[in-house]
Amino acid sequence: MILNCLNCKALVDAQEISNYKNDITDIDDYQSTSYDCNELLSTYEEYTFLKCPLCWKPFLTYLIYNNDYGHGSDFRKLKFITLYPVSDKTINSEVSISIKKAFDEALCCFENKIFTACVIMCRKAIEGVCKEHKIEKGNLKEKLILMKKEGIIDQNIFDWADALRLSGNDAAHDLDVTFSLEDAEDIIEFTYAIIEYVFTYREKFILFIERKKSKNSLLTHDTDPATEK
């Protein structure tokens, strides 16, 4: 099984150690006018323990299958998740659900080696950051220029986006453009960085400045002779 080893920072052919399957019964899955309601949909989940062949670090994966309403043994995958190791990219709870969802989907695409889709979802997350700050007109480059002018991002963040070609035209949507593992990984790092910068570091800095101003105002009031009786 090809998995992304966070320790080796590479896709590796993980070696399976052990696994087990668990049958799932969900009555909602069986209610269909196309099938006899008494016919059970054979569905199961599989947990697999593996190791990286390079560094021997472990993996734990989760996979859910069903056989598409009784079509013999022709099972199809419904969902695949790497339960361990997990990405260290935890989004601030203050970030809107739409941005979190786009970024989570980008990580999921990367995990499943769908790199171009990963880049598209990263762009969607960045567009969401712009929208949260009422910057919605123009292409992504124009939006990021406005973000920089308004002090929402700094020059380094803008230059980083420019170097990744994220601030150019919609290249990610061009059918002739594909993205590699390295491309997707770089863009995920940037997307996480801009989200953290805008919603964590910048917000903390703004709160710090406000507290400092409030504290200085109180000190000035307390020591100003004009305020004494």
Rank of each mutant, 00 (worst) to 15 (best):
E127Y: 09
N7V: 14
T227S: 09
T48E: 01
L78Y: 04
N169H: 02
G168W: 00
A161P: 04
E94I: 07
T223C: 01
F158E: 01
R165P: 01
D104I: 07
Y20F: 15
L175G: 06
I157C: 07
M121S: 11
T227E: 09
F75V: 01
I209F: 09
I27T: 11
G128A: 10
K143A: 03
M1G: 12
S18F: 13
E182Y: 08
P85T: 07
L6W: 13
L207C: 05
C37N: 08
I17N: 11
L144Q: 07
Y69T: 04
S217A: 12
R123I: 04
A106N: 11
F49E: 02
F190D: 04
P58L: 04
N38R: 08
N216C: 02
V119Q: 09
Y62V: 08
E132Y: 05
T25I: 15
K215Q: 14
D29K: 13
T191K: 04
A226G: 11
G72W: 03
K141E: 06
K21L: 06
A117K: 01
P53L: 02
N112H: 10
L41G: 03
E203I: 06
K51V: 04
D222K: 14
K215I: 12
A106F: 10
N112V: 05
Y84K: 03
V119K: 11
N38W: 09
L164M: 00
H221I: 01
S34A: 14
